Simulated scan of single mutants.
Amino acid sequence: MSALAEHVHLADSPAPAAGELRLRLLEPHDSRRWDAYVDQCPQATFFHRAGWQRVLRQAFGHRTWFYYVERGGVIEGILPLGEVRSRVFGHWLGALPFCVYGGIAASSDAARAMLDQAAQALARQLGVGHLEYRHIARSHPGDPEWLVKPLYVTFRKAIVADDEQNMNAIPRKQRAMVRKGIKFGLQGEVDQDVGRFYAAYARSVHRLGTPVFSRRYFALLKETFGDDCEVRVITHNGELVAGVLSFFFRDQVLPYYGGGLDNARALAGNDFMYWNLMQASAARGMRVFDFGRSKLGTGAFDFKKNWGFEPEPLDYEVKLIGATAVPENNPLNPKYRLFIRMWQRLPLPVANMLGPHIVKNLG
């Protein structure tokens, strides 16, 4: 069922009695109301913002259903959903592809239940393999129909306005790496376009054997979220070393995509980059540094722990619809080892050309 057909179905529903809940689909004129709700709902995250609908549609061509529930014109809950359909990686519906957090954000149990029922009905209508909610904490505890993917953790830590306190909160060995970057004279700069960041990010993921997103995707993030999406690069004597694209939400900074060139390791470029971002964010008034999602047993997991951040499990929930098992589309799956080694051997320009056609189906 298309988004238009689903909207017609909802719009043609009998008008609710006064005080009853009504399920709606996000339209462009509703975006401000939607985002105002996201700003004040404790369960909502940056990845619940309305702009993700535009990003998913324009960057990847994925269909979306951004449901909300209102009562008397007042929103009581939201659920942004995106559909990914791939012959290789499967067919699924989730909240939200390419986002580390998601799921239902609601102010009442009734709104939550209505959104949950709508998502499950849509998943069945679309014939997907599974429905996935990327809640930080489980929303269906004890329900055997909802399975948990114990693969990811997130890392979040409080920061303060004082640089010295933030520096002293970093464990000694990691603090030494930050000071190494400072000693080399590394500098942080904020760009208004994604060009230099993309060069560093693309080289970094290629070393890992991971397909890269398109440059257009990052440009769309910057265009869509404006000042709440920052592109920061690290330089050494004017030469690019590393780059990070970060989101700002309430009092939180979320470094979301980052990477370095081949010179980054010797210069402690990535270590300095996150310290430089932490400094600038604290000065901007941010009080939570969200280092984001990592897979258990990876180098990224170890790197974040070295900063003194404690892992917090992400209990993503999956309900099987047409599939018989939870898919394992991640680099830790042994069946992808050969692909990773082959990808690392590709010339970087070739990898950058082919990568976006593959990664758009991963989510």
Rank of each mutant, 00 (worst) to 15 (best):
A3N: 15
A17F: 07
A18E: 13
L21I: 01
D30I: 03
A44G: 00
T45V: 07
R49V: 05
G51Q: 12
E70P: 07
E70A: 12
H91D: 10
Y101V: 07
G102N: 02
R112A: 15
A113S: 15
D116V: 01
Q117H: 12
Q125I: 00
Q125C: 05
G129R: 00
I136L: 15
R138G: 07
P141K: 12
D143K: 07
P150C: 11
V153E: 10
R156H: 13
D163N: 11
E164T: 13
A169Q: 05
R175S: 00
A176N: 12
I182S: 02
G185S: 13
Y198Q: 02
A200V: 04
S204W: 01
Y217H: 15
L221A: 07
K222M: 06
T235Q: 13
V244H: 00
V244T: 11
F249T: 09
R250K: 14
R250G: 02
V253G: 00
L267V: 09
A268R: 06
M273D: 04
S281G: 06
S281I: 05
M286E: 11
D290Q: 12
D290Y: 14
D290L: 11
S294F: 07
T298Q: 05
G299I: 06
N306D: 13
P311T: 05
P313N: 05
P313A: 09
T324R: 11
N333H: 11
W343H: 01
P356V: 02
